[in-house]
């Protein structure tokens, strides 16, 4: 607002040159940006900063509750909270499991789709459909597949005569987490595939042909031509996938709501329960802070290693 007061609109004839910029232009830029920046500041930047601050307080649900700064008290409590550690372990298993499987399967599919194969069109369409589905619907869809009585999976095992494999996939302690991870892979694979496919199409054909003329095998060409060219794309998409997976919520909420017995209690679900079931805002925010620190640390290690390999 001060910019408006300080810079009266006088210089309309001023040259909008590349280097210097006239005052009227400057005012106009701010006027144009304001409607977007203001909401982002008020409803995104500010809440985020306040949220991080809440992690150092004893904030609780309810009106007119006194909030006091407690420093690292929440984190001391988190260190001794077995449920938290458990949820955290599950979160890492989930995020790593989904991201790695997603990447391997998506790379395979992208390589196939990059070939002249029949049914490629069908596969391309199918590969995008899960991306178009709301996470809640993906959850419902797989609940139907895993359903103990009316599910596709158990019926399949019955048809092939493997009745011993029939089980309550989402309700069983042993199978719940793997079952949920497969759903995560299914839901996130399309995006990864599309990105990797775009990357593959950017790999120069001449390099491949030259390598083939030199007698390099398909594996060698993949290892020494395709993979190096694809590395930047791979690093970018796996990093993003990891962040998205670690912060994912809706899918598992619908599938298991964290059950059975907390076996699929991802950190986001844990924090949600802490905040909106038990009303421990400060504790939940502290949990969020820990998640950010861990993600940043893991990404830093990953990106540094990749960078060192590249040099």
């Amino acid at each position: 607002m001060t910019t408006l007061a300080e810079r009266p609109d006088v210089d309309r004839a001023g040259k909008p040159g590349r280097g210097g910029r006239s005052r009227s232009d400057r005012t106009m830029i701010y006027l144009l940006l304001l409607p977007s920046l203001l909401p982002i500041l008020v409803l995104s930047v500010f809440p985020l900063l306040r949220g991080m601050y809440l992690g150092f307080t004893d904030a609780r649900a309810g009106r007119n509750v006194e909030v006091t700064f407690t420093g690292l008290e929440n984190y001391r409590e988190l260190l001794g909270d077995e449920l938290f550690w458990n949820s955290f372990k599950i979160g890492l298993l989930w995020a790593f499991g989904v991201t790695v499987l997603q990447f391997v399967l998506a790379l395979g599919l992208a390589l196939l789709l990059n070939q002249q194969l029949r049914f490629r069109g069908v596969a391309r369409v199918l590969a995008v459909v899960p991306w178009a589905m709301p996470p809640v619907v993906v959850g419902i869809l797989w609940k139907l597949v895993y359903h103990p009585d009316a599910g596709l999976l158990n019926e399949f095992f019955h048809r092939v005569g493997a009745d011993g494999l029939r089980t309550n996939w989402l309700g069983d302690f042993g199978t719940a987490l793997p079952a949920v991870i497969i759903v995560g892979v299914w839901a996130g694979m399309p995006q990864t595939t599309v990105v990797l496919l775009a990357g593959l199409q950017g790999v120069a054909r001449e390099l491949h042909e030259a390598a083939a003329v030199d007698g390099a095998s398909a594996w060698h060409r993949f290892r020494h031509v395709t993979l190096p060219a694809l590395t930047p794309v791979i690093v970018a998409i796996t990093s993003l996938d990891f962040i998205w997976n670690f912060n994912s919520f809706g899918l598992v909420y619908v599938l298991t709501a964290g059950g059975p017995g907390g076996k699929t209690m991802l950190p986001m679900l844990f924090a949600y329960e802490e905040a909106f079931r038990y009303g421990n805002y400060g504790y939940a925010a502290a949990l969020g802070n820990v998640m950010v620190v861990i993600i940043v640390a893991l990404l830093a290690v990953y990106l540094r290693r990749r960078l060192r390999e590249a040099n």
Binding site: S44, F46, P47, L48, R50, G51, M52, L54, G55, A59, I243, F246, N247, F249, P267, M268, A271, Y272, A275, Y281, A284, A285, L287, G288, N289, M291, V292, I295, V296
Partner: peptide, 10 residues
Amino acid sequence: LFPFVLLIIP
């Protein structure tokens, strides 16, 4: 990078 929990409470 930030989990929704940090945003949603404020």
